[in-house]
Amino acid sequence: MNFWRKVIAITWKDALSEMRTREIIFSVLVFTLLVIVIFNFAFGTSQEVIVLVAPGSLWVTFAFAGVLSLNRAFIPEKEQGCLEGLMACPISREIIYVGKVVSSLLFMLIIEAIALPIFAFLFNLPMLSLQVITITVLTTVGFVAVGTLFSALAVNTKAREMVLPILFLPIVVPIIIGAVEASGLALAGESWASFSSWLGIIVAFDAIFLVASFLVFAFVVEE
């Protein structure tokens, strides 16, 4: 119980600073919409092509949006010297990790909750089914689990923003494959059973990387 109270305190701090600065959600959302628009130009307008490329462009968009927003998870902390403050708190490093995961997850889900209907509207596809939403939420958990760890790592290097995508993208390849395939099947109107093995991969990825990142996070933020 005590553990989660501390986690929520960190999440609340992030949510509060986000509400005041509107740094992450607003800018990443605009970026996401721009990527969707550009994909439309890249792949043409015929409905058959759109059906074919929609799952891929959806997940490329969300992966890029993830890189962008996760990069911001630790940069403001570093710039303002808040990270030292967090580290000086009488809480374990793992709590910082979980708190950051929860707040980044929250931001990402808000962005996706706005982007998905717009995606559905612009691409003329049934994106708002329970299936697609489940896939989106589960995949986002995986993105955030890995991304938070690497974001904390990246902010402590000289190259900062450059480091996160280089680390993040190869590691999340399996979950992106899973998400693209599963949402492709879901959009084609297939049943849950048809993509259950993909969902299995996504859930396994989430579980493995939540645990692995939880365990090694302390080594990343240590001074």
């Binding site: 890995v146 760890l149 790592l153 680390l167 190869p170 590691i171 390849v173 399996p174 979950i175 494959i177 899973g178 991969i201 396994a204 990825f205 493995i208 990387f209 692995a212 990142s213 090694v216 080594f219 990343v220």
Partner: peptide
């Protein structure tokens, strides 16, 4: 950290 996380990823990459 990358050496550990990257290695853990290998089975999932292979499977997917």
């Amino acid at each position: 950290v990358v050496g550990i996380v990257g290695f853990v990823d290998i089975p999932i990459i292979a499977l997917s």
